[in-house]
C-alpha cells in the first residue's frame, strides 16, 4: 500500500494497539467516573501523570518495575479516594459546575507542584528486564514492551468486565450509575461507592501512566494532552460506556499511529477529525446511552 511494505504496516498496527491500550485504560476510568458521579474529571490526565511519577519513585526505590507499577496504582487510588472524599464530596448538590471547576483547578495546580518538586526535566523509567528491544516474527519487527502493554491491558479489561458483571460491588457500581438514590434506599452507602468508583477510575489512569512511563518518561505536563485525548475517546465511545471506551481507544490508537506514519504533524488534528466524522454518523458515540456499562 502506497509502496509501504506490509511488514511496516503491521508494525504500525502494533504501535497503534499499544498506544490505543493506554487510551483504553484512561478512557475506561474516565467513563466509570462520569457514569457514576456525573463528574467530568478534567484532572484525569493529572492522575495519569501522577501514576507515571509514582511508578518512577517506586521503581527507583524498590528496583523492580513490577513493584513500581503496582505501587503506583495503589498510591494514586489513595490520592483519588482522598480527593473525592475531601474535595469533591462537599460540592455535590451545589452548582453542577463546581466539581468540574475543582478537577480543572487540580489539573492546573498539581502539575505545577510536580514541577516544583521534581523539576521540568523528565524522569526516565527503565524498561523492565526481558521486555527491552524487539523480536522478529514472520519478518515483522515486534517491540516486546509494546506487545506486553497490549496483552496486559487486554487482561486488565477482562478483569474489569468480570468485576463489573460478576461481583456484588461491580453490580452496585452499575446500578448506582443509573439510579444512585434507589440504590441508597435499598440500604447501600452510595457515598462510599462514589469514593470507590473515583478511586477505581483514577487507578486505571495511573496504570496507564505507569505503563506508558518507560516509553515517554514522566514529565509534569504529560497529562494535559492525555486528558483531552481521553475525552475524545470517551465521546467517540459514548459517555459512560466502558465498552465504548475500549473501542474508542483502539480506534484513536490506530488513527494516531497511521497518520504519524504519513504526516506526523497532523496526528493531533486527525484525532478530532475522527471524532467529528464518528459523531456525524452517531451523535451519541458508538455505544451511546443504550450500551451504558
Amino acid at each position: 500500500m502506497f509502496g509501504i511494505p506490509v511488514e511496516v504496516l503491521i508494525m504500525q498496527v502494533i504501535f497503534g494497539l499499544a498506544l490505543g491500550a493506554i487510551y483504553v485504560l484512561l478512557a475506561s476510568g474516565l467513563s466509570i467516573i462520569f457514569g457514576l458521579l456525573d463528574v467530568i474529571n478534567f484532572a484525569h490526565g493529572t492522575f495519569y501523570m501522577l501514576g507515571a511519577y509514582a511508578a518512577f519513585m517506586a521503581t527507583s526505590l524498590s528496583g523492580s518495575f513490577w513493584v513500581g507499577v503496582a505501587a503506583s496504582v495503589v498510591i494514586v487510588m489513595l490520592i483519588g479516594a482522598m480527593t473525592e472524599y475531601f474535595l469533591l464530596k462537599p460540592l455535590y448538590g451545589e452548582w453542577p459546575f463546581y466539581p468540574l471547576l475543582l478537577t480543572f483547578g487540580f489539573a492546573v495546580a498539581v502539575p505545577d507542584l510536580m514541577k516544583a518538586l521534581f523539576g521540568l526535566i523528565g524522569k526516565v523509567v527503565e524498561y523492565p528486564e526481558g521486555l527491552v528491544g524487539a523480536f522478529i516474527w514472520g519478518g515483522v519487527l515486534v517491540p516486546k514492551y509494546r506487545l506486553f502493554i497490549i496483552i496486559f491491558t487486554a487482561v486488565v479489561m477482562i478483569a474489569l468486565f468480570l468485576f463489573l458483571k460478576r461481583s456484588d460491588l461491580g453490580m452496585i457500581i452499575r446500578a448506582a450509575t443509573r439510579d444512585s438514590l434507589m440504590v441508597n434506599v435499598l440500604g447501600v452507602n452510595t457515598s462510599r461507592i462514589w469514593t470507590t468508583g473515583f478511586a477505581l477510575g483514577v487507578g486505571l489512569a495511573a496504570l496507564g501512566g505507569a505503563l506508558h512511563a518507560p516509553m515517554v518518561s514522566a514529565i509534569p505536563d504529560m497529562g494535559v494532552e492525555m486528558t483531552v485525548e481521553s475525552f475524545v475517546v470517551v465521546v467517540i465511545g459514548g459517555l459512560g460506556s466502558v465498552g465504548g471506551a475500549i473501542l474508542g481507544g483502539l480506534i484513536i490508537g490506530q488513527v494516531v499511529s497511521f497518520v504519524s506514519l504519513f504526516a506526523g504533524e497532523y496526528s493531533q488534528v486527525a484525532i478530532f477529525f475522527a471524532m467529528a466524522v464518528i459523531l456525524m454518523v452517531r451523535p451519541r458515540g458508538l455505544f451511546g446511552e443504550a450500551g451504558r456499562l
Binding site: 452496585i172 452499575r174 434507589m182 434506599v185 435499598l186 440500604g187 447501600v188
Partner: peptide, 25 residues
Amino acid sequence: SLIPEERRVIPNLTVLENLKLGMLI
C-alpha cells in the same frame, strides 16, 4: 423499605440482579 411511585427498577440490571441488590442489606 420504600417502594417509590416511579417504581425505579434498575433498568440496566437483570431481574435477578435487581433482587440481589435488595438482598445485599
